[in-house]
């Protein structure tokens, strides 16, 4: 017979098995993966990825995403420029989708992660009725959707390379893809159990 306190039960982030929190050297009894891998650096790893992502997001908005050549005339458009162009030409749904995927989702994700990372360290929003687990879960679900713009550029670049008309990806595509990649990583290494400890 073992006596366990319900508060000491933690979930393995890999296989979701319930484990008893033994503080140091936690290994999941079912799949063997370490839980609390980052016990000593609680949030630092997540911060590092997040800051990288935010830095990469700046060139993603400054450099052109799409470079199109039509009969020798070259046109470059950034993410925001592309959205404005599409809005003006009347494709409102597409403009809205791209705006949602490449502006709203990344910025929301940055803000939510910054909020979560701060709130697990300092007593911020402790008595508010914000369900941080749900907030985290939501950002994890909608996060990958910001890849839409990168995929669209990849498809257009592959599809349109003819004699007179050509589309190639711009520098921003790399920056944007990196930004999305690092936000996904930042969310993944974020230790969810910290939310519980600081509730």
């Amino acid at each position: 017979m073992i006596e366990v306190d319900e508060k000491n039960l933690i979930r393995c982030p890999v296989c979701e098995a319930v484990n008893i929190d033994k503080d140091k050297e936690n290994r999941c009894r079912r799949c063997g993966s370490p839980i609390y891998k980052y016990r000593r650096f609680k949030t630092e790893k997540s911060w590092a990825y997040l800051i990288t992502a935010i830095i990469a997001y700046i060139p993603a908005n400054l450099y052109p995403m799409l470079v199109s050549t039509q009969f020798g005339k070259t046109e470059e458009s950034t993410i925001v420029g592309g959205i404005i162009l599409m809005w003006e030409s009347g494709s409102y749904p597409i403009a809205a989708v791209i705006f949602f995927a490449s502006i709203l989702v990344p910025i929301m994700k940055f803000l939510v992660l910054v909020y979560l990372l701060i709130s697990v360290k300092y007593p911020l929003g402790k008595d508010k009725k914000v369900n941080k687990h749900k907030l985290y879960y939501m950002t994890e679900t909608i996060g990958p959707w910001s890849m839409i713009d990168v995929f669209v550029v990849a498809i257009l670049a592959a599809l349109i390379h003819m004699h007179n008309v050509q589309i190639i990806a711009g520098t921003a595509a790399t920056a944007f893809a990196l930004s999305v990649f690092f936000t996904l990583l930042a969310a993944q290494v974020f230790d969810e159990s910290l939310i519980k400890e600081n509730r």
Binding site: M1, I2, V4, E6, L9, R11, E16, V18, R30, Y137
Partner: peptide
């Protein structure tokens, strides 16, 4: 809460959300 051994923890679930 009292349990038999660690294996009995498999009857518990923590909601993933």
């Amino acid at each position: 809460m009292k349990i038999e051994n660690e294996d009995a923890l498999d009857h518990l679930i923590i909601c993933h959300q």
